[in-house]
Design a protein around this nucleic acid. Sequence first.
DNA 1: CTGTTAGCGCTTTCAT
DNA 2: ATGAAAGCGCTAACAG
Lengths: 343, 343
Amino acid sequence: MKVTIRDVANHAGVSPATVSRVLNTPELVSEETKQVVQEAIAALGFSPNAIARGLSAQKTDTLGLLVHGLSDMFFSELYVGIEEVARNNGMKVLLFDSHHGLDRAQDGFTFLKQHQVDGIIFTSRPVTVDYDPILSRLGIPVVLTLTQSYGKFPLTAFKVDDVRACFDAVSYLVSRGHRRIGMISGPLDDIIAGAPRFEGYKKGLQHASIPFCEDWKEFGNYRFEHGYLAMSRLLEKQEQNQLTAVFAASDTMAIGAMRCLYDRGLRVPDDISVMGFDNLRIAQMVTPTLTTVAQPIKQIGELAIEYLLQAIQNQNAQIDGGIHYLPHRIVERESVRMIPVNT
Amino acid sequence: MKVTIRDVANHAGVSPATVSRVLNTPELVSEETKQVVQEAIAALGFSPNAIARGLSAQKTDTLGLLVHGLSDMFFSELYVGIEEVARNNGMKVLLFDSHHGLDRAQDGFTFLKQHQVDGIIFTSRPVTVDYDPILSRLGIPVVLTLTQSYGKFPLTAFKVDDVRACFDAVSYLVSRGHRRIGMISGPLDDIIAGAPRFEGYKKGLQHASIPFCEDWKEFGNYRFEHGYLAMSRLLEKQEQNQLTAVFAASDTMAIGAMRCLYDRGLRVPDDISVMGFDNLRIAQMVTPTLTTVAQPIKQIGELAIEYLLQAIQNQNAQIDGGIHYLPHRIVERESVRMIPVNT
DNA sequence: CTGTTAGCGCTTTCAT
DNA sequence: ATGAAAGCGCTAACAG
């Protein structure tokens, strides 16, 4: 029921070391013994114990992925992207989901360290000074994706430029003839997806010489319900505002907003245009399909893992500690209408 | 950078064994040494290596979860449910995603075995004779959720009764005055979510004395696009069919169907009612919100893990090998209309 | 090319 | 109540 490398060695009439060699460095073994050993392996149905291997070799070929709420659609798409890239690089992924909750996020590092992962990918949460103590005694490389470091440890990060992305989103709306553009923002104390996106929005307006109006903004926590609520608050002020478009900091909020509009008898995009951020799969499933900002998740995963692999190799890891911006992209669909120019 | 139990022992002036005891069986250690050791642990920032622990103790407190396409929304919700239950029971979850693909599904067992998980939860895929060889040499308990065994190994399973659930779905539609009810089914060679759901549909019609008509059914692979396509095929025959409702074997197909209807200028539920299966979160995000069949995923996870935990304890595991059916539930929302009785 | 010998970091008898 | 010693299953020098 439990067959070890020793059993295989006995069965094949060689030493455990030899079996280990045909497993890891077959080129160092003669053809014929290799043959015998492989037969023994097959005969006994042996599969090496990854845990023992990890302990002995001091590496597990596993990358730890720290995520915050796998159920958040967004993260599940992120997971899949990263898992695929890792697998293509011969690495496994050990997932830790913090389910939001800061404590558990820190636990995540401990958990992954305990499991001796070779490197860690941390996602979508600002890395503040709170993490400094753990990071200082971690001893394995960490890379950030879709977030950046605000602590004293310079961690290298791969993400889009949120300010820029939202600037572009607003500019897109402007190019479609919109000038009265509202925003459903994330919380401003969220320094990763809240404040920067709001800033990008304001800059976008400014660039188009549109004076920003306090009444044009509402906040939410990125979820559907909050999008709905924020939109209804916006609608209460619609008489003065006369918004023709609303930009939301997440697709789920955008979709919530669309539902709110629907319930109030307003049509998207005919009465009001809506734009999201994330390009989740559901953006294509709702009606109208959602125009949104896409982040190159796959590419980010690729670069992050590439970086990590390198850092693992060069123990002397020259952490560049920089932020690498990747290009976002605006995905045009049905939720934004073109407003004809007044002639 | 790397602190072991030995370092702690030295620092505290005790033996490694004692440190191990305060970690695992504190009741066997005197108050004062416990004190000293805990201080040493804190001082050095020690956290035990889970991998070494697993090797030595021959158990990892980890459950393996075998899933097929985490991106499938459905699985990500399932994962979250199971992870939570596991955590509440002091267990971690090691995820393996087969991304569909049969080979990789079998790999999954090997992978999890290699990582010495204490038990395995296998989801949503029929367990056929193909798995017999691996199962026979696995040596750790396995439980099935949302699927059942068709191989020679009787594996205990927790799921809803798909036939019954679809029977009820159709009955619900009938109770709403529908009699010409179409179905977008999964492939009939899918013995878990395809054939049984279709069978339930037919039985539901039969029970209501509605003669089943071949033209009322179309097939798809559970995805949005296929739902769309299947619906448009149904619409081609609508002149004869005169369907007033369509039941889809998955929420995503149902939503695809709704979009198709929309594109053809038909309104849901006014012109045609649509019903889904799964109760994904998006079912509440689309407009109209989707009436659907919900499976008690959380409860299923709970029972499965409970069972697994028990099987792990009693090495002599009396596998009951039975199928445990859990109650499904119909979630009424906006996509089904009531057809008034003809008077 | 292959076997021997030490561990990897922790748990667990068995003594004391 | 605590320590010494053996070992979990595998890898990695070091010999030969």
